[in-house]
């Protein structure tokens, strides 16, 4: 055995067992190893007994499933309860719909020349957005006059959601625009330059 590591391992076993060491053993290194092996680091623990008591108590305590097991229902009754719970979930009423916004101010301006129709957009149905009236009153924003009128084709009932019938992308003199055909109105969203005064209300004392 010529490897120092192998020799040390063999000498260590003999040293820790109290057997005589062969000549040439690294007694200083063996003594250091013995010091570490004999050091009782666990004497510093402050939780040894409390941890044991806590874990054994947890082991003795039945789990939630084990505690509920004696209360188990007959199979038919359990299935009926599960079906009833599922039915209640499916019949849960939807959240109430908020009323529509009040009619916008007069923002009608001369209509822009009709742009060539582009490929239709696939627009999903959306719910109406209705901020609280007091929030509207405090808002620093004002409506921007649109280049084309908000065309209505009938009376929009309050609280009724907008339903998109069709949508398409077009171009205007200033950029792109998107037109939504709703059930009772046509709405256009378009790009165009605006001035800062058009965006904010200037409070006047």
């Amino acid at each position: 055995m010529t490897d120092p590591a192998d020799r040390f391992e063999a000498d260590l076993e003999a040293f820790l067992a109290g057997r005589p060491l062969p000549p040439g053993a690294d007694e200083a290194a063996l003594a250091v190893a013995a010091r570490l092996a004999q050091a009782d680091l666990a004497a510093e623990s402050r939780v040894r007994h409390s941890l044991r008591a806590r874990l054994l108590a947890r082991q003795a305590r039945p789990s939630l499933l084990e505690r509920l097991w004696p209360l188990r229902l007959p199979a038919g009754l359990a299935a009926a309860c599960a079906a009833a719970a599922l039915l209640l979930v499916l019949m849960r009423p939807r959240s109430p719909q908020a009323p529509l916004l009040p009619a916008p101010p007069d923002v009608i301006q001369p209509a822009a020349p009709a742009a060539p129709a582009a490929k239709p957009l696939r627009v999903r149905r959306s719910r109406p957005v209705a901020p609280a009236p007091e929030a509207l009153a405090r808002s620093p924003f004002v409506s921007i006059p649109a280049a084309s009128p908000f065309e209505t084709h009938g009376k929009v009932r309050a609280g009724h959601p907008f339903v998109t019938v069709a949508g398409r992308r077009t171009r205007t003199a200033h950029g792109q625009a998107v037109v939504w055909e709703l059930e009772h109105a046509t709405v256009r969203l378009e790009e165009r330059p605006v001035r800062i005064e058009e965006l904010f209300v200037k409070p006047v004392l």
């Binding site: 050091a39 680091l41 666990a42 623990s45 040894r48």
Partner: peptide, 19 residues
């Protein structure tokens, strides 16, 4: 316990953390 604690304490510098 003593062997596990001894190993952990030899790796962790704080006895409370070792606990």
């Amino acid at each position: 316990f003593a062997r596990v604690y001894g190993f952990v304490r030899s790796q962790v510098g704080d006895p409370a953390a070792a606990d």
